[in-house]
């Protein structure tokens, strides 16, 4: 395994990779989160799904430290956010890459800002590419790649600094169907190889269920957790999984809950 666990494993590992207590967040007079609690079991891939405007993006941004919150506590592997090493994949790869840097320099950027020497950066990137069988000419600029390749490059950039949690904000929403399948497969491969827990916001139910161990279904505002649905189909999941009984049942269950929430 290429990416080391960041914490020594001799002591009992934290039970949860994300743990939220009493989170409150308002925008002006609109209360988004009021005393929100959440514990996510370790080493899981968790997806978040809910109606528009329920604050999915705000949630992922608060947990990853991009958006401040009013009160409450968020811990990643039992540590405060700023002490945790996180990777973040943005929804719009075009606006999250640095287009003046080559693909290689983009991927190596998180290492460079930490002051890692150049030869070490090169080794790290090379190992990363080898691990996931990725064959791209990284001397080229990001915009010269296809959408799927660009999103893949931004996933690699998020992984290069060996994060202990990977956040993904609607990683497929800017991709067409064919590319979504490709990036989704790669993401699953990454999850299986690295065992990095992932927290992913999605905007479509199939994507919410397909890769997830746990699906979080959120309500309308003020947001609370309606249900945490487990999905334990074996991995790697393939296109056949999409038509398997457990997948269809879990999807239908999620859809029912979503509909009830919409009617409220």
């Amino acid at each position: 395994m290429m990416l080391d666990q960041p914490e020594p494993q001799t002591v009992a590992p934290p039970e949860h990779f994300i743990s939220i207590k009493g989170l409150c967040k308002s925008f002006g007079n609109a209360v988004l989160y009021d005393n929100f609690d959440l514990d996510l079991p370790r080493n899981q891939l968790v997806s978040v799904f809910g109606p528009n405007g329920c604050g999915k993006s705000t949630l992922i941004n608060m947990i990853s430290g991009l958006t401040p919150f009013d009160s409450g506590e968020i811990l990643i592997h039992d540590k405060p956010i700023r002490r945790a090493r996180i990777g973040y994949v943005f929804q719009n790869y075009r606006e999250a890459m640095l287009p003046w840097l080559s693909a290689y320099d983009n991927i190596a950027y998180p290492l460079r800002v930490r002051g890692m020497p150049e030869h070490e950066c090169r080794d790290r990137v090379a190992t990363l590419l080898n691990t996931f069988n990725i064959n791209l000419d990284l001397k080229r600029y990001p915009y010269s790649f296809s959408g799927g390749q660009q999103q893949l490059i931004s996933i690699l950039r998020a992984l290069v600094a060996e994060p202990e949690v990977l956040f993904l904000d609607e990683p497929f929403s800017a991709l067409d169907f064919e590319t979504t399948l490709f990036v989704r497969d790669k993401l699953q491969e990454i999850f299986l190889t690295t065992q990095i827990p992932m927290f992913m916001v999605v905007h479509n139910l199939e994507e919410a269920v397909f890769l997830a161990d746990t699906i979080l279904l959120l309500s309308k505002r003020p947001t609370h957790l309606v249900e945490m649905v487990s999905f334990d189909a074996p991995r790697p999941r393939t296109l056949d999984t999409l038509s398997s009984r457990p997948f269809v049942e879990v999807s239908r269950h999620c859809l029912d809950i979503f509909r009830q929430e919409m009617r409220k």
Partner: peptide
Amino acid sequence: KQSRILAAKVMGANPWQ
């Protein structure tokens, strides 16, 4: 682009970087 600033921030860049 705000998203690029956020991206750099989340990758650990300091204000000068």
